[in-house]
Design a binder for these strands. Structure first.
Lengths: 254, 254
DNA sequence: CGTTTTTATGTATGGTGTACGTAGTTTCTT
DNA sequence: AAGAAACTACGTACACCATACATAAAAACG
């Protein structure tokens, strides 16, 4: 991975090509590979052996082609990763059946959580700009709908959506471990914070930490059946409380 | 970077060594290198040229030693990265002067935001377990204090701390771009969500997105002077609203 | 038909992390 | 004092990585 050139127009055009699907000039031989095939193969590799196993060579052999042929369809590994991540994200959940905006948001968060749980390598994909793929944007759109419906205005809804995305991803990032967890008993969510270094905890230097550590992780599931673990559910619920209060205050005062 | 061995006890012991500082058996020649020197050199490299420039060879030449000599003090690049990240995190801010828990949390978030802004490569360090370094734990401890003081119990405080950490990091991750931003005009916060692909936005498929996109990013700073940008400040404030309501409800009812 | 464009392949370059062997240095044991 | 043992730094070597570039074949156009 050499230094990225990636002036912004460059990347923009590349992404555009990957959206529209790169119309071909119909002169040369018919391509036997496509961006979609390559991206799907990349997803297969990452699903099977993790992000660190995802190399150009590996994807190429997965498809039975030479390594360099990939570069006829994809400008480089970085872009391939973005496309693969978007493909792996898949379509967002349908929240039309939700009763209120709270449940819609919770369902959305639960779906994202489940997705990240089943594909932890998505958390390792380095993201260096706002979501740009069709699926990522669809997820964002589905989240914005209930937020707008709840009464948030544009900037607030955008901020809230960013907030929620960050919370789910961040919580998943340290709750679901991606590399070592697979080797251990698999599944169980790794006790939130700080189990390994407990013995070093100097009570004088980390009083709050030691106090909190005493409280055992209850491993409670959320009361509603949307699959949110407690660590995530509590924060999301408090946040939604705050959103509700905010719009209530505005609608009552003016 | 080959596959990681890292059974959990392994990593635990490695981390332990790096905490305690690896007592030497006093048999061989006195070492001229130390973990601290190496970590600081790594931080220097990352500060200067970004995470992708941080290689063992680069760190070694930075120190005027051979590449392989590093491995006498550090078991591998992954651990070096963790140590470097902890060193780069530095000590947490002192929140003793804050008036209430809200201001304390805001100050904390602002300090973290500023730190990530000045060292964006920290956002690229792959984190695969809970914070474990002394500085990281200190940051966590400082955040837990006001949360506990506000009236949260152990599990809630832990969840809230995780929530806030995730929010700041996640928001920074897509607001501060790390690789391409340095080349562009530098500084200005990249318009939150989705500027590049606006032309592809099909109104039928992304109605909420297009609606939100119309609302221009006001680029407002937060009202309080703690350096939080609006996108982050709004969410944090709503979250704190929710926390306040939560403890208020508990103290009044039980 | 030849020209032109596009695809797939092969080769080559400069980078990566790190396993391993060697030499030299210091301290502990005898 | 002499030897053994432990430890550090170094050099070499290997496997792998992304990708620049040249080559050859294939399809469509003039």
């Amino acid at each position: 991975m050499t230094a990225r050139q990636e002036k912004d127009p460059d990347l923009q055009r590349s992404l555009a090509l990957l959206w529209a699907g790169r119309r071909r000039g119909s002169r040369g031989p018919r391509p036997k590979l496509s961006v979609e095939q390559i991206a799907q193969a990349a997803v297969r590799v990452a699903d099977a052996d993790g992000l660190e196993a995802l190399s150009m060579q590996r994807v190429a052999t997965e498809l039975g082609f030479s390594t360099m042929s990939l570069y006829n369809h994809v400008p480089g590994k970085d872009l391939l990763l973005e496309v693969a991540a978007d493909v792996a994200a898949g379509p967002p959940p349908d929240l039309a059946g939700a009763e209120d905006f709270r449940q819609a948001v919770r369902l959305w968060a639960g779906a994202l959580w489940a997705g990240l749980r089943s594909r932890p390598w998505l958390l390792r994909v380095p993201l260096d700009h706002a979501p740009a793929g069709p699926n990522q944007l669809a997820w964002l759109d589905r989240l914005l709908r209930p937020l707008l419906a709840a009464g948030l205005v544009g900037g607030e809804a955008r901020s809230a959506a960013l907030h929620l995305t960050a919370v789910v991803r961040g919580t998943a990032q340290i709750s679901l471990s991606t590399s070592s967890e697979r080797k251990r008993a698999d599944g169980l969510p790794h006790a939130g914070l700080t189990h390994a270094v407990t013995e070093f905890l100097d009570e004088e230097e980390y009083p709050a930490l030691t106090a909190v550590h005493a409280a055992e992780t209850g491993d409670q599931q959320s009361p509603d059946g949307d699959g949110l673990p407690f660590e995530l559910s509590f924060g999301v619920d408090r946040f939604l409380d705050g959103i509700e209060g905010w719009v209530a205050a505005r609608t009552s005062s003016g």
